[in-house]
């Protein structure tokens, strides 16, 4: 029997629980020659702000064992630029589109959210309260409970779209942050963003990244993410979207057992653009092998 991979996440129907993570898949067209976008559960596009934003100086990226550190700095064409340039393309596809949004103040987050309310083809908003690479906002919101509540509730008031705050991993009690989001009106929660990190060129003694520090992603952070998903799942009832070091179905399944209703493939898109497609296939194969009729039965199925 073919297992049912379909899910309903925060009211958004998806063909399967496998998405591509914000910042690792552009806005869709970049990978469209290689990946059939219609096969994905959802595309989470790169973070959008109210106005176009130039991002950080280069170098913006450095590979380290088991991952990479990035400090792109949220370069993006702004709400209007994104809607004009990319939404017509995305609307021609049969795939859920989740727009990642950010701002420098709670009001800016809310304003971006308001602009997306009612835009055809946008299915949900992911609220980036955890980018480690911008000075104002970003991680500063996501590592402070009051600021987290402030941003999420401000966005909640301005949109009817489902909202999915994305949590920072560098907090002492992830459960408290997940609860703060749930109480502030989040429909789902995604975690984790990249982990604050740094690399130094020992010959020049200079930081490798122009931004000095960045965010670590890739296989290196996967076990950290599993533990945080497991803890967040104990704290809240809203569905979780797990992100962090997925390279194959195995890590995705691990996340779902730990408590995630869906997963997103990030850095692995750079290594192997077909990773998400392979994860979907591997997940289906796993469900068959374990006689699990519905993918949702896997969620929160950890045996202690």
């Amino acid at each position: 029997m073919k297992p049912d991979l379909r899910i309903l996440l925060a009211g958004v129907p998806m063909k399967n629980p496998v998405m591509v993570a914000s910042g690792t898949f552009g806005y869709g067209p970049e990978y469209a020659d290689l990946v059939n976008l219609n096969q994905l559960g959802a595309i989470v596009v790169k973070g959008i702000s109210l106005e176009p934003w130039k991002g950080n100086r280069t170098p913006r990226l450095v590979e380290v064992p088991g991952g990479l550190i990035n400090a792109i700095g949220l370069q993006n064409p702004g709400v209007n630029g994104f809607i004009e340039k990319y939404m017509p393309f995305l609307r021609t596809h049969d795939v859920a589109v989740i727009v990642n949004i950010w701002g420098k103040t709670a009001e800016e987050y809310a304003e971006v959210a308001a602009r997306f309310d009612g835009v055809p083809g946008v299915h949900a908003l992911e609220i980036n309260i955890s980018c480690p690479n911008i000075k104002a906002g970003g991680n500063a919101f996501g590592t402070n409970l009051d600021a987290t509540r402030l941003v999420v509730s401000a966005v909640r008031r301005k949109t009817r779209l489902p909202i999915i705050p994305k949590l920072a991993p560098n907090v002492s009690d992830i459960g408290a942050f997940a609860r703060a989001c749930e109480e502030s009106g989040a429909d789902a929660i995604s975690l984790i963003n990249s982990f604050p990190a740094m690399a130094i060129d020992i010959e020049t003694r200079r930081p490798i990244l122009a931004n000095v520090t960045g965010g670590l992603s890739g296989p290196a952070i996967h076990p950290i993410a599993v533990k945080l998903v497991y803890e967040a799942a104990k704290a809240v009832k809203v569905p979780l979207v797990a992100i962090g070091g997925i390279t194959s179905a195995r890590e995705a399944i691990e996340f779902m057992i730990a408590g995630a209703s869906a997963v997103a493939v990030g850095t692995a898109n750079f290594t192997e653009p077909l990773t998400a497609i392979e994860v979907i296939r591997g997940l289906e194969e796993y469900l068959c092998r374990h006689n699990i009729p519905n993918v949702s039965d896997l969620v929160r199925s950890l045996r202690l």
Partner: peptide, 15 residues
């Protein structure tokens, strides 16, 4: 020649 990530225009590393 710039430090590249994805190579396809998605990651915005090689600006």
């Amino acid at each position: 020649d710039r430090h590249m990530g994805c190579g396809v225009g998605a990651c915005l590393a090689c600006i």
